[in-house]
Design a protein around this nucleic acid. Structure first.
Lengths: 299, 299
DNA sequence: CAGTTTGATATCAAGAGGGTATCAATGGAA
DNA sequence: TTCCATTGATACCCTCTTGATATCAAACTG
């Protein structure tokens, strides 16, 4: 059974006229007659009743017309789908992200924008730590991870996505609360609340680095697993913290967010993929990531 | 795009090995390589990654494998369906029947039996008068009608199905009620309730004929459209009636069914189809009708 | 580093598929 | 009734696709 036979059959069954069908198929009538004969022979079923003057469908022939149409449509749809996948217009992307990424609005905005331009791409999002993301990337469970550098991993490629300043988070009753900006070293004597290194690569390290740059070694009073918990500890007066700008949206009465005048420390987020894993789909997605990043950098 | 390419692709994509796939397809390896190349060229999409040592699927390739499998399965299913239709094992039959047919259990039993042997045949049943059935047959709305002969129609063929005696229906207080059997002429002075000729071909005619045969001309007191109404009129004392044996199942306290000793008048039911409309499906169905009829006749 | 495995390439033979000419049957027109 | 036009089938030829064989090139194995 070949599709040519099905195409020929559909033409004949729709026209109910061999010569017209042949015209439509851009072949001559005799080969078309032979094709239909061969099709019927192959099926062992009479599809057409020819009275040498009028062609009509038998009951199986009517059914087969529908089947043939459906098959040809499915073939066409499959070809179209695979082509769109090849152009990166269709497919599925599984994305991992650290919980800290979820607080910003950069990723949601990226995804909304991307999906508008790529309606045939389905996307699944999973929250996982940086380490879990690396494992998931290697096992193919996700194709892209969103996490905060630096990474110690080789064999990955990294597309910078967002870059935002760390800001100080103080209890509402802290003497410096309410200032527009303060130097980091003003917090030299305060205990610090941080997220542990394993949870968000760069979180703890960046804080340490910033403090050292400001000329003091911070006292880590408490470690909290999630950013809301950090804010809770600060509000309860356990100490101060440095958090990405985006955490401001979690502010409440008990805490005050204050910009740092010096040193200005930036925390970055990047899209990460396994090196050498560049499908057109990923390329398109990461292109969007890079495009947004560079547009922000310029603006 | 031809199915041969899809079959070849499925083999290669499943084996991930050209030589093994070629073996499975019973062709040599070089033509197989060319087929896949041509397929990829035709799609404009790279489906396989060959490292000259290892073959793996690209993402579109994985998708296309699924599509190809689905298409081939659909082709196979369509071929199988059309073959079963050709053998009369699958399809649809629309059947018309007069309301009087519905009272017997012969048709339900026939259908039950037929469906057991032909699970892929769907059947629709519609109640309509004999005249409506003829129109429906001609317009193709039904393929078989069940009605009572005689027919005045030409161009139909008729397969006898059931043949049952008429029995007398008397009001419970009728002097002859309760007898095992009576001659029809015992009812010569009773008024008769019948169904009109247009509703059930043969009903009225048969009664008239039977009475004339018994030597009297019956007085038609009342015409009722449906058999239950006839029984209602009889129960109400409007008169007596002659009904097919099968009407016994509608008996209730107000009426008495009494066999006729003479003349024994039989009312027949037949399956009717348009002459020249013999599909394998219909042939199988009508074969079953005839089979049951002849089995009953013998038994 | 040699040998084996494996997909690609080149070339040839066979067969499938399309084209032209023609036939046979049917239905309508004269 | 007869003749002609229409339409699907048949016969025959030619081309191009498809498969087979021989061979190559690259890469993994030991």
């Amino acid at each position: 059974m070949e599709l040519r036979l099905l195409r020929s059959y559909v033409a004949v069954a729709e026209e109910l006229h061999f010569s017209r069908a042949a015209l439509r198929l851009h072949i001559a009538q005799p080969p078309l007659s032979r094709q239909i004969q061969r099709l019927e022979e192959e099926l062992g079923v009479q599809l057409l009743k020819r009275t040498q003057r009028r062609v009509s469908l038998t009951e199986p022939g009517r059914q087969f017309l529908e089947s043939a149409r459906a098959i040809l449509a499915q073939v066409e749809a499959s070809v179209s789908l695979v082509r769109r996948m090849d152009r990166g217009e269709a497919g599925h992307i599984s994305i991992g992200m650290t919980s800290s990424v979820a607080f910003g609005d950069a990723l949601p905005r990226l995804l909304r924008r991307y999906r508008e331009g790529h309606p045939a791409v389905s996307i699944s999002l999973q929250e996982m730590s940086a380490g879990e993301q690396m494992a998931a990337l290697r096992e193919g469970r996700i194709q892209v991870g969103f996490m905060r550098p630096p990474l110690r991993e080789a064999r990955v490629s990294l597309i910078p996505f967002t870059r935002e300043p760390l800001v100080a988070v103080l209890p509402a009753e802290h003497p410096l609360a309410g200032r527009r900006r303060i130097p980091l070293k003003a917090l030299a004597r305060d205990p610090f609340i941080t997220v542990p290194r394993s949870e968000a690569v760069g979180g703890l390290d960046l804080v340490l680095e910033a403090c050292l740059q400001a000329g003091f070694r911070p006292e880590i009073a408490q470690q909290a697993l999630e950013i809301p918990s950090v804010i809770g500890y600060v509000a309860a007066g356990f100490g101060v913290s440095l958090l990405p700008q985006a955490a401001r949206r979690l502010a409440h009465g008990g805490v005050s967010f204050v910009d740092l005048s010096t040193p200005r420390v930036f925390i970055e987020m990047a899209a990460v993929r396994l090196a050498g894993q560049d499908t057109p789909l990923l390329a398109g997605f990461l292109g969007e990531v890079g495009g947004i990043a560079s547009r922000k950098a310029r603006g």
